[in-house]
Amino acid sequence: MVRKIIFADSFHLTEEAKQEISSLGTIVSLSLHQRGQLLLESENADIIVAEYAVINEELIERAKNLKGIVVYGVGVDHVNLNAASKRGIPVGNCRGGNAEAVAELALSLMLECIRWTGRANEYVRSGKWKFADSAYLPTWVMGREMKGKKLGIVGAGAIGTRIGELAEAFGMTVCVTLGRKKSHPRFPWLPLEELLPRSDIVSINVPLVPETRGLFSRELFPLMKEGSILIVTSRGGIVDEVALAEALLSGRIAGAGLDVFAREPIPQNSPLFSVPNIVLTPHMGGSTEEAVSNISNIVVECCKRLLEGKLPITTVNLELLQQYGYYSEYAEKSVL
Results as ranks from 00 to 15, higher is better:
E104S: 05
P312M: 03
N269A: 09
K149L: 15
N80R: 10
K67M: 12
E193L: 10
R252N: 09
T281P: 04
L66N: 01
A243N: 07
C175T: 15
A83T: 11
E100P: 00
G251R: 06
T26P: 01
E41D: 14
S217L: 05
V239H: 01
E241D: 05
S250Y: 10
E193D: 15
K18A: 10
T173Q: 15
N65Q: 15
A291L: 07
R198S: 14
G155K: 02
Y136Q: 14
H33A: 14
P197S: 09
I295Y: 03
T315R: 00
I6T: 02
L220M: 15
V2G: 11
S183M: 11
I253M: 15
L215T: 09
V174A: 07
K128Q: 15
V275G: 04
Y52Q: 10
A83F: 01
Q19I: 09
L81M: 13
S328L: 13
T233W: 03
V174W: 03
E16V: 11
L111H: 09
R125K: 15
G157H: 09
P222H: 09
I48F: 06
L178R: 14
Q37T: 12
E329R: 13
L24F: 05
K182I: 05
S203I: 02
G127L: 08
N269M: 09
K149E: 10
A167N: 07
V292S: 04
I21Q: 05
S234Y: 03
G152Q: 04
V275K: 02
S126A: 12
D259H: 06
I231R: 02
E241H: 09
L306V: 03
L38W: 07
A262Y: 12
T117P: 06
S228N: 01
A99H: 02
G309I: 08
D77R: 07
W189L: 06
I231K: 03
E58Y: 10
A256C: 10
F7C: 04
P210R: 08
S293W: 13
E264T: 11
P267C: 11
T139F: 14
A247I: 00
G309E: 02
A99E: 06
S126E: 12
V275L: 07
L30P: 00
I253H: 01
P276H: 04
V242S: 11
R213Y: 11
L220V: 13
L13H: 00
A53T: 10
H78A: 08
L208W: 00
F273N: 08
A45S: 11
T173E: 15
S334E: 05
D259K: 01
I153R: 03
A101L: 08
P267M: 13
F187S: 03
A63M: 07
S23G: 15
R95I: 10
V209D: 02
A245I: 09
